[in-house]
Design a protein around this nucleic acid. Structure first.
Length: 258
DNA sequence: ATGGCTGAGCTACTCAGA
């Protein structure tokens, strides 16, 4: 089974690109972030027409997450945490894989910039709430996958010039520590598990030819609990969609799981 | 290079992203 995650930066502006991607790569599940639409404006029919069910948690203008899936997702929940600002940033649900039930948690972490603003406090508070909830979940459920746009650069090698990001909400040491705290609950950064030193990115700014110069960062991740990690056979950052016309500034990251 | 694009909401311009 292939599961993919992609911050699409508006599901409506990106509809043709998303449909092209689904037809070409045929993931069983695509986890979307930043759909920037209310559920009523989500183009469900377009996805249903090519065999994907829609599970949507949207809001007006900003944020919003969703699952597109060929298989049933059960117990879909949009209240995983009580978001301090009431924003649509998490949707989760369960899938069956062989005899296993796996909880999929699709997240869009707050950006947090600029760091001297209330937005940074919101990011820290959000990450604390999320990590506490994951700790609680892991006590009873050993099969979880967290994926999405974390807005966190884990290490130096995950950004084209880390010195420029030392006072940025994506790379500040305080934020990277929160990522470590989450991992230390018993999760693995799946990309780094397969590729110890490889330099690859999932995001490139729209500005100033960042894509052409490969000025990017790795901020979209798959984290898996140990029981699930065993079943993950590969992971890939698929750069093709970022090079298309009218692209998202992020590109999909995909796992194969058996 | 702390915003030089891009999108939503709206219909002029602000807010947000990373």
């Amino acid at each position: 089974m292939r599961i993919s995650s992609w911050n699409v930066n508006s599901v409506r502006a990106r509809l043709e690109n998303i449909l092209d991607y689904l037809k070409k790569e045929k993931p069983e599940i695509l986890m979307l972030q930043e759909i920037k639409a209310q559920e009523i404006n989500f183009p469900k029919e377009s996805f249903e027409k090519i065999g994907y069910k829609n599970y949507v948690f949207g809001q007006k203008s900003y944020n919003g997450v969703a699952f597109l899936s060929k298989v049933d997702i059960s117990n879909v929940n949009t209240k995983f945490i009580n978001d301090p600002l009431g924003q649509a940033r998490i949707i989760c649900g369960s899938i069956s894989l062989k005899e296993k039930e796996i909880l999929l948690i699709n997240i869009y972490v707050p950006n947090g910039n600029p760091i001297e603003s209330e937005k940074y406090n919101y990011k820290k508070k959000w990450l604390n709430l999320f990590t506490n909830k994951i700790a609680e979940i892991l006590n009873k459920n050993k099969n979880i996958i967290i994926s999405g746009d974390f807005n966190i650069i884990p290490e130096e090698i995950d950004v084209y010039d880390y010195k420029r990001y030392e006072n940025d909400a994506l790379y500040k040491i305080e934020i990277r520590k929160k990522f470590r705290e989450l991992i230390n609950l018993g999760l693995t950064d799946v990309y780094r598990y397969f590729f110890k030193d490889k330099i690859e990115y999932t995001f490139w700014d729209y500005f100033a030819g960042s894509w052409q110069k490969n000025y990017g960062m790795r901020i979209d991740h798959f984290l898996a609990s140990n029981n699930v990690l065993r079943d993950i056979k590969s992971i890939k950052i698929n750069k093709t969609p970022r090079g298309k016309l009218k692209p998202s500034d992020h590109t999909p990251i995909e796992i194969n799981i058996t």
